[in-house]
Design a protein around this nucleic acid. Sequence first.
DNA 1: CGAATTTGACCCGCGC
DNA 2: GCGCGGGTCAAATTCG
Length: 361
Amino acid sequence: MDTWISSQPSLSLDLHVGLPPLGRHQAPVALAKPKVLVEENFLQPLKKEPEVAALETELQRMSQENRRLAEALTAVAAKYEALRSQYTEMVAAGATTTGPSSTSEGGSVSPSRKRKTSESLDTAAAGAQQHPHGPHGGEQHPGGAAADQMECTSGEPCKRIREECKPKVSKLYLHADPSDLSLVVKDGYQWRKYGQKVTKDNPCPRAYFRCSFAPACPVKKKVQRSADDNTILVATYEGEHNHGQPPPAPAQQAHDGSGASKNAAKPPSPPRPAAAAAPHHPHLHNHHHHHHQQQQQQDVVAAMSAGAGAPGGAAAAAASELIRRNLAEQMAMTLTRDPSFKAALVTALSGRILELSPTKD
DNA sequence: CGAATTTGACCCGCGC
DNA sequence: GCGCGGGTCAAATTCG
């Protein structure tokens, strides 16, 4: 994590693809050159033909858009930095006084209580007994749900214990198509939806999922669209998986299930090397970033989220590399999809070729 | 027909 | 004590 976002010149680099000469980076993006060709060769020999004019305006439009994107990214980076430093301060303060803060990210997680019925206690106890040896993921429960509840039943002031056990909550922000009503977050695990609720502060319903891969797995997940921007899905993970990564499913629903939440609990196709720590470092990247633009955006946001919680250095580098690549691919895709851009590119290239041709008079 | 999802009802912590 | 609201349960429904 750390300053990966602000220390990545490559980030803004990609956003400036297509801008008028910035003279800033040697963008490894193949699109930079064709644009220069367009300007050099078109405008002079052909003068201001309507096509050229259109192309120019289009270029300007794209430049403006890129600039806006760059500004937005800068703002986001600044906010991120501010939040991060704030968080660091809070952690430092907490470490010198009482200990872990009750919330891990953003601190906005409502104090989730646990149902206190005997049944749920039985379940929790059973879950705890299923892996008493606690190797694997089990030992990664510094304050697992089972332990939490056991403490409570023993008459301890469970409220505070619960607070201290909370840091297992992590949030993941994903970009999602607003027209896609399903609250599907592909993170490699199998989830069973057990509830849905409209909350007070958000008109969009919140979906509740439980990990269905292992019966005793205590992990839960809440997915809700952001109230501010409903293209953003907010997935809140609670707990840690006490089992390994589910095997990858046959690649079929790789690009999202159109049928609402039918796929909500199905594992996604991409094979994932990372193991059980997904909720905290959900590396939704790498293997499927070429599927869709949207999936790429999901990856980017996920990577940013993961980067925010990962130890700096390698993770940051990986995240930034991923982001760079995704942005470049997105832009390339967007541009190549635009027929007018293609036409202009072809014309420019052919014009250039003709110009450079020795058979010119 | 079994498994997954939906959805209304219920539980329970919290603030007043 | 009461109401509110988030979280969970479980019967009904849907789907493969």
